[in-house]
């Protein structure tokens, strides 16, 4: 039970919490407290110091929107954003309740009447923006992986393909999302004309921009991994005379998975970074648009709200990374 809990924590990237579990189970208290101090105490001190320096420095920076906000103001704005969200949710619930009541009343009078259901027209809250951003980045990430993995496997298994594609990959790899965005926008506007309501146009534009920028690490890592599979394993596949398909699925891919996941992890990180820029320019709802709108707003709260966004972006990026690390540990055979 305890061993399982510790293993779970280690796998999920919460290894700093392991001493707490050990303390709870009554292991040597002094030793565990030392570890706890090292794992949690030290980072905690660093954070406190950082917040202190931030608040001191911020007071001295005068902008056109007032003094640069310190940690306290940012915390206050975070609360305000949360309250706004909860407020909107209550309003939405009330709206739907009213609508349902109205519709049932109409139906009672005349069962054949056509009724209208309208979705709540209120504005997207901060939490909604976060969810949209996450959806967009996952969409982009999935598209990127679907493109990068097959091409990566192809590049890794054939030197000729790698030599052929290498210049294209190397040239496209360093291109900034801001350069891709206008092209993607024009192409999507021209191609995506069906209006089936599945996806917003701006959503696809941001997602594709994310894909274009984030597929390279996965592609290169997969290619490198496939090309450098231990010769012993390849020899086994040859001696057992596995078919090319079985050789790929049973030998090459399992051997490459750790490297592929490292690539996917970098890709997701890049994608998340690119997304904010893409959303800002594409005006796709999401954290990027939130930052841009607040910047355009220019109220006295704007800077604090943007800082909330900065911290949120950082935290979510960190969480996504931890998620990939956990996945990587799960599939790794070593």
């Amino acid at each position: 039970m305890k061993a399982k809990a510790i293993q779970l924590l280690n796998y999920s990237g919460f290894s700093w919490a392991v001493p707490i579990v050990k303390l709870a189970s009554g292991e040597d208290i002094k030793q565990q407290f030392t570890i706890l101090w090292k794992r949690i105490g030290m980072p905690f001190c660093a954070i406190v110091l950082f917040l202190f320096l931030w608040s001191v420095a911020a007071k001295n920076v005068q902008t056109s929107l007032g003094v640069l906000p310190g940690p306290v103001m940012v915390y206050h704005q975070a609360n305000v954003l949360w309250q706004e969200h909860m407020g909107e949710r209550t309003k939405a619930r009330e709206f739907y309740a009213r609508q349902d009541a109205r519709n049932t009343a109409i139906l009672q009078q005349n069962p054949d009447a056509t009724i209208k259901t309208v979705s709540y027209p209120g504005k997207a809250t901060y939490i909604d923006q976060i969810i949209t951003s996450l959806k967009t980045v996952f969409m982009g990430f999935v598209i990127a992986s679907l493109i990068a993995l097959p091409i990566g496997i192809l590049c890794g298994s054939s030197k000729n393909v790698m030599t052929a594609l290498n210049p294209i990959i190397q040239v496209l790899k360093p291109v900034s999302p801001l350069a891709w965005l206008p092209i993607v926008t024009m192409v999507i506007s021209a191609v995506y004309t069906t209006n089936n309501g599945w996806f917003e146009k701006s959503f696809i534009i941001s997602a594709l921009t994310v894909s274009l920028c984030s597929l390279w690490p996965t592609l290169l890592n997969t290619a490198m991994g496939v090309a450098s599979v231990n010769t012993d394993y390849i020899n086994v596949a040859r001696v057992l005379q596995l078919s090319p398909f079985k050789k790929t699925t049973k030998v090459v891919l399992p051997a490459t998975l750790p490297l592929i996941f490292t690539g996917l992890r970098i890709s997701l990180g890049v994608g998340w970074m690119v997304l904010i820029a893409a959303e800002m320019l594409a005006q796709n709802p999401g954290l990027g648009k939130f930052v841009w709108d607040e910047f355009q707003n220019g109220s006295s709260d704007s800077l604090a709200r943007i800082m909330v966004a900065v911290i949120t972006i950082g935290l979510i990026g960190f969480m996504l990374d931890q998620l990939m690390v956990a996945l990587q540990r799960l599939v790794s055979f070593e």
Binding site: D232, Y233, N235, V236, P254, A255, F333, E334
Partner: peptide, 9 residues
């Protein structure tokens, strides 16, 4: 094989 060459996964 000399080094067993079992597939670790």
């Amino acid at each position: 094989f000399q080094n067993y060459s079992l597939l670790p996964w």
